[in-house]
Design a binder for these strands. Structure first.
Lengths: 340, 340
DNA sequence: CTGTTAGCGCTTTCAG
DNA sequence: CTGAAAGCGCTAACAG
């Protein structure tokens, strides 16, 4: 029986340790603060024993209050159910731990109201810095926060905000996609993404796509938005196949899922007369149909880079805001064979 | 230009607000503490304006230090890359926000060392309670913490620890799986899960499976562990098909992924001569082959329930530790047709 | 209705 | 090498 009960002792404090060890609070503080060398060997040993025995854990809140640093990093993600976000979180989390920081994670659920709410909460907990995957709808709050806190953006830029940004080299990714498709002989490319809502990465991918298609004389390209009518719209586009072999390019994991489902409903197989290449590698890319060709983002590295970027700022760097673009890695699978 | 700079003003404090508004700190404290009714209307209005204008945000750390409550909940997950965990996190997170709590999330990466580390960190940040998806390898730290903190376990029980547990009704889930498979005419069932490492839910599923098979005269069952040799072991088992139509039962998402990959490598299709039913619904269950029949866990509800359970404890409930078991929901797809 | 006063647990001068 | 004392930002009696 170990039921948690009202008998719960209040936490052991530094004073108790001090008393038990027969020293002053200051001495204990020095010990836990790592100034162990400045203590008499005997004292240090006694302290070690007492702390161990009492099960003392320094109260980070109190330390933070006094020293002005909490060793807490806040992270805001737009959608924790998106595998991309999770992978980035994982990268950030790992880097945090390695540097002695803890992560306070907030999920905005793609909701502006929640974004605002969480931003306030994070601030009130005195996080030392912020890693933000924002919606970008209302820069106000963010701009404001940025004046008080080091911050780095992930994947999504914010207009008017001069901040470090780490993400994918979207232009390159789209270029790789089109190169591959063209090489494979596809001439009619339909790109599909979530509706444009101001998210910079979506914009950039669409831009890059349009520009790149324009540069390719023999290729035709169109852009579709994910919505309730996707299956119909898609079918319509696919019917209009007077320009050569067709292929789909999905701009992220969400689009890939939606498109794959739509194709399934429509009863269209992958790879035979219709190519597909996806931005974002997913667990199941290799499993569905002949396998889906993907452009994998180095998500872990993106996460780690975001943290390191933040760390530099925390250490006082005043350098110009940087933009860290990572290259996507092409993984060729059966969904983009040479069309027959 | 909004570059964060060393000019960063220190945060606005309650004293500054007090001075600016010409009242005492106590009054400001009352205002932000919600005792707004106990203030003169005029004072309240002045305060509102000043706070707004100064951009004042109460320091939760300081409040926590004083009041002994931080409005922080700690959550420990074994593997954030597992979609099950993420879905539960989402449920917890939502519930937290609705009740004014923030979530500090820690991922142990299935590593004992990291579990210990994070547990200490969470404690040092004075989280009010803990939601734990533990490895269960070393109850020591956890047992210890449980004496100081309300805690609820998710999915995995811990021997010797009398704590609330919320998870899946494993017996029922396995029963549903076998019922379905048997109804469909399968007679030789191979169950596959991650290696038994003390994780209670894995144990329970294996136990339930063995017991349930025993009760079914006409059915034969075996259990396999995920490891490097899975493809071979599996092939071997499948060759031994003298007991009637065969089907696979995967015990969780990880197993489903591994098995699906192994089958693909082996060139075996789903549904024709080999059935498959999976515990855990995944994004791609409907997409691969004829679709994978799944037993979906109500993950969001599990997460929400975990938080609510914790909340009761936080409010002082001394009730006997409960076990909340949710039923899995069967989603029939093409991987379990009536065998030919 | 509002101000005064003491701390919460810890760190940090400043003296020994 | 160690202790005393002040104070981080806030709340909670207790007076008025």
């Amino acid at each position: 029986m170990t039921t948690q009960s009202s008998l719960t002792r209040p936490r052991v404090t530094i004073s108790e340790v001090a008393k038990a060890a027969g020293v002053s609070k200051a001495t204990v503080s020095r010990y836990i603060g790592g100034d162990r060398q400045l203590l008499a060997e005997a004292t240090a040993q006694r302290l070690e024993a007492v702390i161990q025995q009492l099960g003392y854990r320094p109260n980070q809140m109190a330390r933070g209050l006094k020293r002005g640093q909490t060793r807490l990093i806040g992270m805001l993600v737009a959608d924790i159910l998106n595998p991309y976000s999770v992978a980035v979180i994982h990268g950030v989390e790992t880097a945090c731990r390695q540097h002695g920081y803890s992560l306070v994670l907030c999920n905005t659920n793609r909701d502006d109201e929640q974004e605002r709410h969480h931003l306030q909460a994070l601030q009130s907990y005195n996080v030392e810095g912020l890693i933000v995957n924002t919606l970008g709808h209302q820069p106000g709050e963010l701009l404001d926060l940025h004046r008080r806190l080091p911050m780095v953006l992930v994947d999504r830029q914010l207009a008017d905000l001069q901040v470090d940004l780490v993400g994918l080299d979207n232009t390159d990714a789209v270029e790789q996609a089109l190169d591959h498709l063209q090489t494979q002989g596809y001439r009619d490319i339909i790109a599909i993404g979530e509706p444009l809502d101001g998210t910079s990465s979506r914009h950039e991918r669409v831009q890059a796509f349009t520009a790149s298609v324009q540069r390719r004389a023999s290729v035709r390209g169109r852009v579709l938005s994910l919505d309730a009518h996707l299956p119909q719209t898609l079918e319509q586009c696919l019917a209009n196949d007077d320009h050569g072999p067709q292929a789909l390019l999905t701009f992220n994991g969400v689009a890939t899922l939606a498109v794959t489902r739509a194709l399934q409903v429509a009863g269209r197989g992958l790879g035979d007369d219709l190519g597909l290449i996806a931005i974002d590698e997913l667990d199941w890319c290799s499993l569905v149909g002949p396998g889906i060709t993907a452009l994998a983002q180095p998500t872990e590295r993106i996460g780690a880079a975001a943290f390191e970027c933040l760390l530099e700022r925390l250490r006082g760097s005043e350098a110009q805001p940087r933009r860290l673009d990572f290259k996507a890695q092409l993984i060729v699978r059966g969904s983009t064979p040479l069309p027959t």
